[in-house]
Amino acid sequence: MTVPFERAAVLGLGQIGGSLLHALRAGGVDTIGYDTDADTAAAASTAGFTVAPDDAAALRDADLVVLAMPLPQVIDALRSAAPHIATGAVLTDVGTLKSPVRDAVRKHAPQTMFVGGHPLAGVEETGWAAATPDLFRDAPWALTLEDDTDLDAWLRVAALVCDLGARPVPTTAADQDAAVARVIGLPHVLAEALALTGLHGGPLGLSLAAGSYRSGSRVARTRPELVSTWCDGNPALVDALDDAIARLAQARDALAAAGSVLPLARAGHRARIEWEQRRVEPVQIDGDADQLRALGRQGGWVTAVVPAPDAERGVRLLGRRPAASAG
């Protein structure tokens, strides 16, 4: 396919937005950035990128608009940007939680063609200095496909994400938020608790801390205000915490009764190994929303959006999904 978009405006130039600015330009998309922080905007401009003085200038003639600011700033950004988004332009974002952004777009920019996005590619470093064009390589990238999502807009964003080397995962906002509660929100909460528990054990424990402590608490280095935006307002995280607490309580009770954590260790070991060794198989589907959402729920993703003259929408999607177990 040809490049899905001709001109992209990236609003917010932190690690994710800045990396997207790099990657889009490298992929041949005319790209302009904007950031409310003057130092960030200056750094991007000094690096050779076109940076607009305000969002209105950035959005002029853009057929793709990316909201790349932290969630608490999205509503104000939408209010400011909505009047300047061109008719027919596609709006997407890069936030961890999708339901709040979906609701904000429906309220403040209902005229836009919105495709919620979440590239799972960030690291604990933040800001423009942490931006890199290779950040999204082989990374999952959730793309929300609701009943009111324009399918053609979704396909265009999916094609672009494939061009960036990432793996578009079709999903709904609700399903995405429930999933990331367990694989993003919960790990961050556990990392903070581990960091504190180790600290409260005294200096001897910290002097003996090695790989297990460092790996388990690594993401506690993330800026706290970012962690809160990934966790707060997501009811699914409560269920995930209840699940984890129940498993920890079971291990605690076993130890208190002179028992063993072996059952938990075995189950956790098996779960991790099965995840690492899972096999995938190719899949081919037409551009059908129900089929795409089913692919995401199966743990699959899209690898390419290709022309298919015999398909109703003129495209066919190639992808991968976990292979059925032979056992």
Results as ranks from 00 to 15, higher is better:
residue 188 H to M: 09
residue 27 G to I: 03
residue 326 A to R: 13
residue 274 E to L: 11
residue 40 T to P: 07
residue 307 P to H: 00
residue 250 Q to A: 15
residue 158 A to T: 09
residue 51 V to S: 02
residue 188 H to W: 04
residue 52 A to T: 04
residue 315 V to Y: 03
residue 141 W to Y: 14
residue 137 R to W: 09
residue 26 A to W: 02
residue 65 V to M: 08
residue 159 A to E: 11
residue 175 D to S: 12
residue 244 A to I: 02
residue 275 W to M: 11
residue 85 I to G: 07
residue 288 D to F: 08
residue 52 A to M: 05
residue 112 T to P: 11
residue 21 L to F: 00
residue 183 V to S: 10
residue 74 V to C: 08
residue 96 T to M: 09
residue 296 G to S: 10
residue 325 S to E: 15
residue 206 L to R: 13
residue 176 Q to R: 07
residue 130 A to K: 11
residue 79 R to V: 12
residue 139 A to V: 02
residue 60 R to W: 07
residue 229 T to K: 07
residue 280 V to S: 13
residue 117 G to S: 11
residue 33 G to W: 03
residue 168 P to Y: 05
residue 74 V to E: 04
residue 314 G to E: 04
residue 64 L to S: 06
residue 312 E to P: 01
residue 153 A to K: 03
residue 315 V to A: 10
residue 148 D to T: 14
residue 295 L to K: 05
residue 142 A to N: 06
residue 70 P to V: 15
residue 275 W to A: 15
residue 172 T to S: 14
residue 172 T to Q: 09
residue 127 G to P: 08
residue 212 S to K: 08
residue 263 P to L: 11
residue 317 L to C: 07
residue 184 I to K: 06
residue 219 V to K: 02
residue 194 L to N: 09
residue 150 D to V: 12
residue 42 A to Y: 01
residue 101 V to D: 13
residue 84 H to I: 07
residue 251 A to W: 00
residue 103 D to Y: 06
residue 253 D to T: 09
residue 293 R to L: 13
residue 27 G to W: 00
residue 311 A to L: 01
residue 33 G to R: 01
residue 123 V to H: 08
residue 149 T to D: 11
residue 179 A to V: 13
residue 106 R to I: 07
residue 232 D to L: 14
residue 278 R to G: 11
residue 211 G to M: 15
residue 157 V to A: 10
residue 81 A to G: 12
residue 322 P to W: 04
residue 267 A to N: 11
residue 238 V to H: 10
residue 12 G to C: 03
residue 295 L to A: 00
residue 136 F to D: 01
residue 27 G to T: 05
residue 151 L to F: 11
residue 128 W to K: 07
residue 178 A to L: 15
residue 177 D to V: 00
residue 26 A to P: 01
residue 100 P to E: 01
residue 10 V to L: 12
residue 51 V to T: 08
residue 95 G to Y: 02
residue 177 D to N: 08
residue 135 L to R: 03
residue 309 P to S: 13
residue 93 D to C: 04
residue 27 G to M: 05
residue 14 G to L: 06
residue 165 G to A: 08
residue 43 A to V: 03
residue 141 W to R: 02
residue 201 G to L: 14
residue 268 G to S: 09
residue 313 R to M: 14
residue 260 S to W: 01
residue 198 G to D: 10
residue 146 E to R: 14
residue 41 A to Y: 03
residue 285 I to Y: 02
residue 54 D to R: 11
residue 105 V to C: 12
residue 81 A to M: 14
residue 257 A to T: 09
residue 250 Q to P: 10
residue 154 W to L: 05
residue 11 L to D: 04
residue 104 A to Y: 01
residue 313 R to K: 10
residue 7 R to H: 11
residue 203 P to F: 06
residue 117 G to H: 01
residue 282 P to C: 10
residue 259 G to T: 02
residue 77 A to H: 03
residue 68 A to H: 00
residue 24 L to F: 04
residue 98 K to W: 05
residue 221 R to S: 08
residue 171 T to W: 03
residue 198 G to F: 06
residue 210 A to M: 09
residue 201 G to V: 07
residue 240 A to D: 08
residue 284 Q to G: 10
residue 136 F to L: 12
residue 124 E to M: 08
residue 164 L to H: 02
residue 108 H to K: 06
residue 134 D to P: 04
residue 260 S to L: 06
residue 277 Q to E: 15
residue 91 L to Q: 13
residue 226 L to V: 08
residue 19 S to K: 01
residue 267 A to L: 12
residue 173 A to M: 04
residue 23 A to M: 06
residue 21 L to N: 02
residue 199 L to D: 13
residue 36 T to L: 14
